[in-house]
Computed example of a mutant assay.
Amino acid sequence: MTVPAPRARRRPTRLGRLLPLLLIGALLAPVGLLVAANWRQATDDRDLAARERLGVQYLGALAAVTDALVAAQSAAINGRPVPREALDRAVEGAAAVDARIGGELLSQERWAGVRAKLEALRGRGNADPESAYTAYGEVSDLLLALHRKVRESSGLVRDPEADSFFLQDSAGQELPEAVIAAGRLADLGTLVARRPAAEQPRGLMELTGLRVAALAPAADLVDNLRSAVDGSESTDLGANVLTPLDTYQRSVEALAAYSVPAKNTGAVDPGQLSAAGLNAHRAARQLQPVILAELDALLVERVDALDRDRWLTAGTAALAALLLGWLAALLVAAGRRARRRAALAATHAEAADTPPHRDPWQPPAAEARALQPAGAAPDQEAARWGAFDAAR
């Protein structure tokens, strides 16, 4: 019976051995791209939030300058001593902030222009209130332009969240414009009252236009802050902002009422208008730091959340790399064991096909031998010479 030879195991090709690793690489590529995209997005958002915090710091310094400038203008127009010390402290504080972060916010050139104008006001006296009003107005315009520059370069104008966007718009645009316009309105009322009767109608028209310029940003400020409170998830924002906002809103309403000419005289009372402007200024001074503090708190919370997202992304990437590396190691080890088994099977098959070693002095195992009677000569040679030996 013929026994079939064992079937030789087929050795895997190089492509077959590399195919599992190629599949792991194909799985690792999209995972790596996804992790890299998430990391890049979280990093960009975090950098934007950190840069916005720099803008908040700069706006805080500019708020102090704005407050001191409006107070100095009111003193110069009304013939009182100008509070130079407060203005100098505010200027030095803003200069320190600009020296620290102005290069990153691209504000140093504009701040240099504003500071030069502020230094020029130092030697101005109170002899000519009209020219002082014009000079302070030029500096105020430059200061508002610097507010806009800081908001743009810091990314505050591109803030993605509704609550923080309304807060930055209120603190960086609406409130500074409202404060400066309210100060001009109160000071212009004083100047108009001093002008000749022939110039009174033109002065009242100027007051009407400036009244609109002062009330419009104040109304936008109130709307923005209420929208920020309504759209925010923070429970502290409403409690901290609404109380000083209500105080400011009432002061602005009083300013609007006293800036309207009386029906019986056709003129405004400069004393009442000046007092209303001072109250609005004080209310804005209380509201400004609250807005900036709440905005900075929201940005800090966002930075912390983005840091957690980045750590989570990094941990996910490390875990995926470990799992895929472990799988690749298992596949490589399995491939090595398969190659060892194939080599061992080939060795056994080769040994089975080779005939066993035979002693040349022994007859072949398969050779047939004739049966001999008992006592017969062990071989033919002994039988042939046996008779000769017996006769001799």
Results as ranks from 00 to 15, higher is better:
Ala366Lys: 12
Arg339Leu: 14
Glu367Arg: 15
Asp141Leu: 13
Leu23His: 05
Thr243Gly: 08
Asn38His: 14
Pro4Lys: 03
Pro129His: 09
Val179Ser: 01
Asp307Gly: 10
Leu118Phe: 05
Arg53Asn: 11
Thr66Ile: 06
Ala382Leu: 13
Ala181Trp: 01
Leu21Asp: 01
Asp88Ala: 14
Gly183Trp: 05
Asp220Arg: 15
Ala63Thr: 14
Thr354Phe: 08
Ala86Phe: 00
Leu59Gln: 11
Ala72Pro: 03
Ala76Phe: 00
Leu331Tyr: 09
Glu138Gly: 05
Asp223Phe: 10
Ala320Ser: 13
Ala86Thr: 06
Gln272Cys: 04
Leu330Lys: 12
Leu167Ser: 09
Leu175Glu: 00
Trp111Thr: 00
Thr66Pro: 05
Arg115Met: 01
Gln41Asp: 15
Gly266Asp: 10
Asp296Ile: 08
Leu295His: 01
Gly271Pro: 05
Pro363Thr: 10
Val70Cys: 07
Val192Asp: 01
Gly172Tyr: 06
Ser154Cys: 02
Gln288Ile: 04
Thr347Asn: 08
Gly335Met: 01
Leu245Asn: 04
Pro83Phe: 09
Ala343Cys: 01
Glu138His: 08
Gly32Tyr: 08
Pro289Leu: 00
Leu23Met: 12
Trp385Arg: 12
Glu301Phe: 06
Tyr258His: 10
Tyr133Met: 13
Ala368Glu: 13
Val150Leu: 05
Pro217Arg: 07
Arg46Ala: 03
Val241Gln: 01
Ala228Pro: 05
Leu330Cys: 09
Arg148Val: 09
Val229Lys: 00
Asp296Pro: 04
Gln272Ile: 11
Arg110Met: 12
Leu62Pro: 05
Glu104Asp: 11
Val114Glu: 01
